[in-house]
């Protein structure tokens, strides 16, 4: 009896309105969890091979032969890396690769950024064919490009030099650099540039002081593409060099007859610089002034 009375008393006070439907919230939460799981899976897919290579590269030779392989670095040793670095041509290849990467990056930005700006801002005659033409260079296989280039470089004395590889890589990188930067320049409002002109800038100054800084994320993206492409490109570099090999070309040429430890160490050394480069450029990709996109 008393139970019934309490029910009656609380019903109007405790539940004045019908219950709120919380099911959409639960669905939202479930979707979010699924998204997280997806992210983790994809990250694992990318990170696991890198981890395994790093693990093998920093393990002793003996540990590599063990079965089952340990997932935890319990026998850390620099022996493998040392052997690899002391092999012929590796250190030189590493230096060459870094040089090629940096010079390719600089050259492709020096040419590509102004070109991207021109494509974005000016309606010049032949703009559309030019953009199409840019894509065509990328459509040609590297082999097709490299052989005539090797011939040309042999004649001009550029063959087997860092510059030869830089020129090839710049040619390969330019289309993406131009396309990426032009799309970013399109996003820079014209009147900001005009404001710079009004307040005393010449066209070049307005570009350097206002437009370029606003296009940093795009330039960073283009830089990553260029550097990683240059770092990984092996075919053209192999054709155009003989002694001045870049690291991937050097590793490739000696991969077949090298021991397992050597392969792991080579793989590790090939992955790391690109990762470091991306790590540093990343903040320019996402971090804008006062509004961090995360």
């Amino acid at each position: 009896m008393s139970h019934a009375t309490t029910n009656k008393a609380t019903a109007p006070a405790g539940r004045p309105e019908p219950e709120v439907d919380r099911r959409p919230l639960a669905k939202r939460r479930r979707n979010r969890i699924l998204l997280q799981v997806g992210c983790i899976l994809i990250t694992l897919f990318m990170a696991l091979p890198i981890y395994l290579i790093a693990l093998s590269a920093t393990s002793s030779r003996a540990a590599l032969q063990e079965f089952p392989l340990s997932f935890i670095p319990n026998n850390f040793s620099l022996e493998t890396m040392q052997t690899f670095l002391q092999s012929t041509g590796i250190l030189g290849g590493l230096i060459n690769s870094v040089q090629v990467g940096i010079f390719t990056l600089l050259l492709s930005l020096i040419i590509g950024v102004p070109a991207g700006y021109a494509v974005a801002r000016f309606a010049f005659p032949g703009r559309d064919p030019y953009q199409l033409f840019l894509l065509f260079t990328r459509a040609l296989p590297i082999v097709v490009l490299s052989v005539p280039l090797a011939q040309l470089f042999l004649q001009t004395g550029l063959y087997d030099s860092v510059l030869a590889v830089v020129l090839l890589h710049t040619a390969l990188a330019l289309p993406t650099t131009i396309l990426i930067t032009s799309s970013v320049f399109l996003g820079v409002p014209r009147d900001v540039e005009e404001a710079a002109r009004i307040f005393g800038c010449s066209p070049v100054q307005a570009f350097l002081k206002v437009v370029m800084p606003m296009a940093i994320p795009g330039i960073a993206a283009a830089s990553i593409f260029t550097f990683v492409m240059s770092w990984n490109e092996v075919l053209g570099a192999s054709i155009l060099t003989l002694n001045q090999r870049t690291l991937p070309a050097q590793v490739l040429s000696s991969l077949a007859e090298s021991p397992l430890a050597y392969r792991f160490a080579g793989g590790f050394l090939l992955v790391i610089p690109a990762l470091i480069f991306i790590f540093f450029m990343r903040r320019y990709l996402t971090n804008m002034w006062g509004s961090t996109i995360r």
């Binding site: 409002p189 900001v192 404001a195 206002v210 606003m214 940093i216 804008m288 002034w289 006062g290």
Partner: peptide
Amino acid sequence: MVFQSYAVFPH
């Protein structure tokens, strides 16, 4: 000049 869209430099 003052612009309609402000045109302040975001960076």
